[in-house]
Simulated scan of single mutants.
Amino acid sequence: MTFSKEHSAGFVANHMARLFAHGLARRIAPLGLAPAQFMVLLELWQEDGLTQHDLVTRLDVEQATMSNTLRRMERDGLIVRRAHDHDRRARRICLTDKARALQAAAIRAAQDQNETALASLSDAERAHLMALMHKVVGAMRRNWGD
């Protein structure tokens, strides 16, 4: 079999991710959010006060990318940086009231995007797809250095 994009898991996953991101971007733009900001907010809505290092690790992004995203979020009034209780070098990233107020609408937008994307799948197919994607992500994280 010759290599083609239709048979490349990487190509298909990347294509699907771009389409998801584009759809999400359209849905959260009226809230003043970008997809990268939304991903950070999801982590902070779950656990406010994480460090930049925590966010880099949890979201598997480059330090410079996270730094730029957090700078924009701070400029937009979504986060503030506070001193860390136990590490004078680290800063905690904390949500503002503005960011907390966006949570319900932003999550609803993401749920709508997911529903649109997965509409042609049965509940069992959705569960299977999610399980397989998590399995692949886990394998890639374990082999990150390869």
Results as ranks from 00 to 15, higher is better:
R82G: 05
R92L: 08
V80P: 03
K98Y: 08
A101L: 10
R92D: 05
T69V: 11
D97N: 12
H86L: 13
R91Y: 14
R91A: 14
R89Q: 11
L102K: 03
L78I: 08
A83S: 13
A90V: 06
A90R: 14
D87H: 15
R88Y: 09
R89S: 10
R92N: 12
G77K: 06
R72C: 08
L78H: 03
T69R: 07
L102S: 02
T96I: 02
H84K: 03
Q103D: 00
R81K: 15
H86G: 05
D87G: 04
R81H: 14
D76Q: 10
R100Q: 10
A101W: 11
C94L: 07
D97Y: 03
R100A: 09
I93V: 15
R92A: 13
Q103E: 08
L102I: 05
V80W: 02
L95I: 01
A101D: 15
E74S: 09
D76R: 07
A99I: 09
Q103V: 00
D97P: 07
A83E: 14
I79Y: 00
R91N: 11
R82I: 05
R100E: 06
H86P: 00
K98R: 12
I93M: 05
R75L: 09
G77L: 03
C94N: 07
H86V: 12
K98C: 06
I93E: 02
D87F: 11
L70A: 10
C94R: 12
T69H: 01
M73L: 01
A83W: 03
L102Y: 01
R92M: 03
R81G: 07
R88M: 11
Q103T: 01
D97Q: 13
D76T: 01
C94E: 06
A90L: 10
H86A: 12
K98E: 12
D76Y: 09
R71A: 07
A99D: 13
R100Y: 00
G77V: 06
R92K: 12
N68G: 09
L70G: 03
N68Y: 09
R91V: 06
R82T: 08
A101H: 14
R89M: 06
A99P: 10
S67W: 00
L78Q: 00
V80K: 05
R91E: 15
L102A: 01
R75V: 04
H86N: 11
M73T: 04
A90K: 15
A90C: 06
S67H: 12
D85K: 12
R72Y: 06
L78D: 05
D85Y: 10
L70K: 02
R75D: 14
L78V: 07
T96D: 00
T69E: 07
R81M: 15
K98V: 12
D87V: 11
R89T: 10
A101Q: 15
H84E: 05
A99W: 13
L70I: 00
A99F: 12
R91H: 15
R72M: 08
E74D: 14
L78F: 07
R100W: 08
R89A: 10
D97E: 15
H86W: 09
D85V: 11
A99M: 09
H86K: 13
H86T: 15
R75S: 11
D76M: 05
R91F: 10
I93Y: 01
A101R: 14
R92F: 01
R75M: 03
A101M: 09
